[in-house]
Design a protein around this nucleic acid. Sequence first.
DNA 1: GTCTATAATCGGATAGAC
DNA 2: GTCTATCCGATTATAGAC
Lengths: 216, 216
Amino acid sequence: MSTTARVSASAAAGADRGAATPTAPDTGSDTAHRLLEAAAEAFADRGFHATTTRDIASRAGLSPAGVYVHFSSKEELLYQLSREGHEAARDMLVHASEAAGSPTEALRAIMSTFSRWHAEHFRVARIVQYEFGNLTGEHRDAVLRLRKQIDAVVRDVVTAGVASGEFTVEDVPDTTLALMSMAVDVARWYDPEIKRTPAAIGEAYADLGIRLVTAR
Amino acid sequence: MSTTARVSASAAAGADRGAATPTAPDTGSDTAHRLLEAAAEAFADRGFHATTTRDIASRAGLSPAGVYVHFSSKEELLYQLSREGHEAARDMLVHASEAAGSPTEALRAIMSTFSRWHAEHFRVARIVQYEFGNLTGEHRDAVLRLRKQIDAVVRDVVTAGVASGEFTVEDVPDTTLALMSMAVDVARWYDPEIKRTPAAIGEAYADLGIRLVTAR
DNA sequence: GTCTATAATCGGATAGAC
DNA sequence: GTCTATCCGATTATAGAC
């Protein structure tokens, strides 16, 4: 389904998954993983700036100083979470798109996958969508590149559907944005207490996505 | 257009607009207005927690202590902005809905008004949509009531359209939420630098809204 | 690799002069 | 109603013992 901005899922996943480089943060260890989980919960619930490193440390069962053995700063924790979240979302969309036999199937797969992910992983999704602005320098640039890849996957499907005559849209980039808005906003309102399951949300949004690209 | 949750715009607007009560914050004066504008800019750009009262004060041309003559706390500033923003959005939607002659017209008016507002007033809109969780106690309750009124206005239009046979939807509350998601998310991605005008966004989203409630 | 202790700074809010 | 000065708790990050 992808054209101009084709993203190979395997290549993208492999690029930064070699033997750990010596300077890279210690994201592999058990404790680092606990810290990432603690930070994800805190950032999603209270926001990046409202979260203290003490809060993260204590949720992970460490002293305040323990954080800095594994991550050089609070922003480094945010970056790891944001990057991994963006990569997971992108890879899911690439696979959904590639497995589909038509633009209609691809759009259904993309909308159900993407909106379901925003419900199921709503904490990471909130960090991905709403804490991007707290990244600094190169981290911000790196994540921005991932965001552009994600956008391209969806846009390419819409473009292909218009080309095949399956879709009728006023404007491809604008429609792409509206499709993504529906799925992204799931992270804002989703609450694990509600009755609707992430899977049901995904099915509903697949239908709504098709409606958005279909003229009366 | 409204039924179960009818909200009279005039009554709602008048309720809290009498002569200023002695205990109420000084939202009428020039300086208070400058502070609100300064806070709106800062909260929207950097978030509530990342904004310092010193930042707000200096943007308004005051010393750090000057803020507290007009507002009792940083949260009080957030509350005024959030409440006024919610009231403005609600009143616009009520008027759009009441002025329309059919559910189709009402939905077009609601979607174009609401999405245009999220672009034109994207700073206040971001505060309304993303800083709600930083309100405390009664402030939070009061704004939650406004949010329910806003939801009811849109839901009533969808319900009326289904009743008249103009709309075909799977589920009224779920479709209402998806409609609002598209408009709300405008506040996240809108940037005054882009070429699309708020009015054009409003027109496009009126069309997309109709598509969402129309079966093939 | 984790801790205790602490440096260095910041931030919300107040006191009291003008 | 605004200012200067300041209180005082909180916060990120580091030093150095174990």
